[in-house]
């Protein structure tokens, strides 16, 4: 399944700016460990899929949750194209990430496997991340 919206209102959207820290989606909710972003950035659908596969391989049988979704289309114009002729065509989809956003969560795995899996995922991502544990108190 391709990781992109089933339907969308607009094919192309403006870039926008990523300002401030995350005010929601910054706590571990579904698993016991999570991977929290320390930087703002865009995560492409391919990166998220690569992370999911890496986590599943590092901790088989665990429950992986992806907390973000690539809602934003990114366009590009082909190489060696002359100026003008309007905006490029949508090429891929990204999730816009603010610092503090929990990107991946893992549950049902022991601590060593969870840490290993999240470490493998962190290496796939273009943002600095840290491992966080679910707050119970």
């Amino acid at each position: 399944m391709k990781n992109m919206p089933k339907r969308f209102k607009h094919r192309k959207v403006q870039k926008g700016t990523i300002r401030g820290n995350a005010t929601r989606g910054h706590t571990v909710e579904f698993g016991e460990w999570g991977l929290q972003s320390l930087q703002a950035g865009y995560l492409t659908s391919r990166v998220l899929e690569a992370g999911r596969v890496a986590a599943n391989r590092a901790a088989p049988g665990s429950r992986i949750t992806i907390r973000v979704f690539p809602h934003k289309p990114v366009t590009s114009i082909p190489a060696e194209t002359r100026m003008g002729k309007g905006k490029g065509e949508p090429e891929y989809w990204v999730a816009s990430i603010k610092p503090g956003t929990v990107i991946f969560e893992i549950g049902g795995a022991d601590e060593s496997h969870a840490k290993l899996a999240m470490n493998r995922v962190a290496h796939k991502l273009p943002v600095k991340c840290r491992l966080v544990q679910r707050r119970v108190r």
Binding site: R52, V53, N56, R57, G61
Partner: peptide, 21 residues
């Protein structure tokens, strides 16, 4: 305690799918 998921097939499919993509 949930039953083990059939990860082997899924992973291989995913891997193939990812590689295919």
């Amino acid at each position: 305690v949930a039953a083990p998921r059939v990860e082997v097939e899924e992973t291989t499919e995913d891997a193939e799918g990812a590689e295919g993509e």
